[in-house]
């Protein structure tokens, strides 16, 4: 436990085994494992809205599974394209470091999320509205995404200095990840769990499209 926290501290400060300017000498699975642990912690907080019966406990469990699932599977879907684009831009030699930057960004996002978890819980306790809970979570995710971006940028800076094309890859990754992530998040609903609906892993309308939904919302159909 203590070791885990020390490593997390290193990641946040960008020192020790997580020093971006040095070649990484740590097992490759550290960063994904950090994403898994910390984001699932936030998921548990997120699902604890309306926690008043045993049935609602399932929502906590589902959300604790869903948040890491969202982050890691989205990455897995985008990675093949990331590798190929890096290759055609002539950045193949830095691929290891680029992938490390991507996962470091997500680990940063997860740690930030987990640290915001207690605040979410307090919000749930003080404001009962479901809509309020949704908006609050969006704000938390936005804040955590910013933190994750800062960590990712820290790893990307030396790469960009080496070759300007890394900047293109940084923004391509963010675009791709957001594009897939939004739809995946939509498919995995509910994360919070409205009190009017039974606890389920997927909603019945899970397999619809978030972008089409938003477009229709805007156009008023």
């Amino acid at each position: 436990m203590r070791v885990t926290l020390t490593h997390t501290d290193d990641l946040l400060h960008g020192i020790g085994r997580f020093d971006p300017s040095r070649r990484a000498d740590r097992p490759w699975w550290w960063l994904p494992a950090m994403v898994l642990c910390f984001s699932s912690l936030y998921g548990a907080f997120m699902g604890s809205f309306e926690f008043d019966s045993l049935e609602r406990f399932w929502q906590i469990l589902f959300s604790a599974v869903k948040v890491p699932l969202l982050l890691l599977v989205t990455s897995a879907i985008c990675l093949p394209a990331f590798v190929v684009f890096n290759t055609v831009l002539g950045l193949r030699r830095d691929l290891r470091e680029a992938i490390q930057a991507v996962f470091a960004g997500q680990a940063g996002l997860s740690v930030a999320l987990a640290s915001l978890g207690p605040i979410t819980r307090v919000w749930y306790s003080s404001v009962a509205s479901y809509r309020g809970a949704q908006l609050f979570n969006i704000a938390m995710f936005a804040a955590a995404a910013l933190a994750g971006h800062l960590v990712m940028l820290r790893y990307y800076r030396p790469l960009i200095r080496r070759h300007g094309a890394h900047r293109i890859m940084l923004y391509s990754w963010l675009t791709m990840y957001a594009f897939v992530g939004v739809q995946f998040g939509w498919t995995l609903r509910p994360f919070i769990g409205s009190r009017d609906m039974a606890v389920t892993f997927f909603r019945e309308d899970a397999f619809t499209n978030a972008y089409v939904f938003v477009l229709h919302l805007i156009l008023g159909h």
């Binding site: 897995a76 879907i77 985008c78 093949p80 394209a81 590798v83 190929v84 684009f85 055609v88 791709m176 594009f179 897939v180 739809q183 995946f184 939509w186 498919t187 899970a206 397999f207 619809t208 499209n209 972008y211 089409v212």
Partner: peptide
């Protein structure tokens, strides 16, 4: 086609989670 194939998983994911034909 290699770039297209590498984007395949993204396409596959949207296919599984979308029913809208125009999209």
């Amino acid at each position: 086609v290699t770039v297209a194939a590498s984007l395949g998983p993204i396409l596959g994911f949207f296919t599984v989670s979308t029913t809208s034909y125009p999209f």
